[in-house]
Design a protein around this nucleic acid. Structure first.
Lengths: 135, 135
DNA sequence: CTACGAATTCAAGAGCACTTGAGGTCAAGC
DNA sequence: GCTTGACCTCAAGTGCTCTTGAATTCGTAG
């Protein structure tokens, strides 16, 4: 099995070595051994890192992800949880779409003051706070 | 002109008073005066708060927003900036859509291991890190 | 006029995701 | 064998957005 040293993982994943060490400390990835002091990683760590990026984008915290693919390795994925998260994403997407449209409108709008523009005012009424990363 | 005390602003905006004080300190909102010690706000602060929520969702930091509607009040909006931000949002939206679809797929997929599922693997390859809040 | 409760200030703390710096170690090349 | 430089550890620091707590002030109801 081919092993990668941290520099190679860093280069291929685009993450700095410090982040990789940090992730390992958090239990998000694992090194398969050492060469002297130096960590060795299996190539599969790259997939894991993609998975982490995916999860981050979906709104999971690092800690939640560490739990999810906890003890063993293979993500024992919780389907209900994922669907819930997908619905959540739907909300965020709709929100962002409204905002994008709003921004474009404001950039184009010629109303004397944006606060007088009905489109803008409608937008504001819908501008609920973005869902906070679960506190 | 009707004025609101902080409790009313809090209640109508859904933000805790501490956040309102924090925003004022940051120059994001202004109280119009005091009644004794107590802040008084114009009703228009509610619109401003919506605007802030909007901006946050669009990826502006509080400081950037404080700059934008800086000295006077009325947002002297920078159109180029807004369009740029809208394009940015477009990217984020496309990203989120892929992730949502990915999550749904994974929840439904029956492949023995997700890492063997081609759809999932394709998803992973696209799971670039979500754009970091401008560092 | 007194007591209550809501608001105030200021400093510190919290949560998340990392980054940085000081000081040490070790494999490899010369 | 010695130097070099990548990698190591551990503690502390960063940036952002707030929250919490202690001590204090003040308007309003009774």
């Amino acid at each position: 099995m081919k092993t990668l040293d941290i520099a190679e993982v860093a280069q291929r994943s685009g993450l700095p070595a410090s982040t990789l060490r940090f992730y390992e400390e958090k239990g998000l990835i694992r090194s398969t051994g050492r060469h002297g002091l130096r960590r060795l990683f299996a190539e599969s760590v790259l997939e894991r890192l993609s998975l982490i990026a995916l999860g981050q984008g979906a709104g999971f915290t690092l800690e939640e992800m560490a739990e999810m693919f906890g003890a063993d390795g293979r993500p024992p994925i919780d389907r209900a949880r994922l669907l819930e998260q997908a619905d959540d994403l739907d909300k965020r997407i709709r929100h962002l779409v409204r905002m994008r449209d709003g921004l474009r409108h404001v950039a184009a709008c010629t109303a004397p003051s944006h606060l007088e523009c009905p489109t803008f005012r409608r937008l504001l009424r819908h501008a609920a706070r973005p869902p906070r990363r679960r506190p």
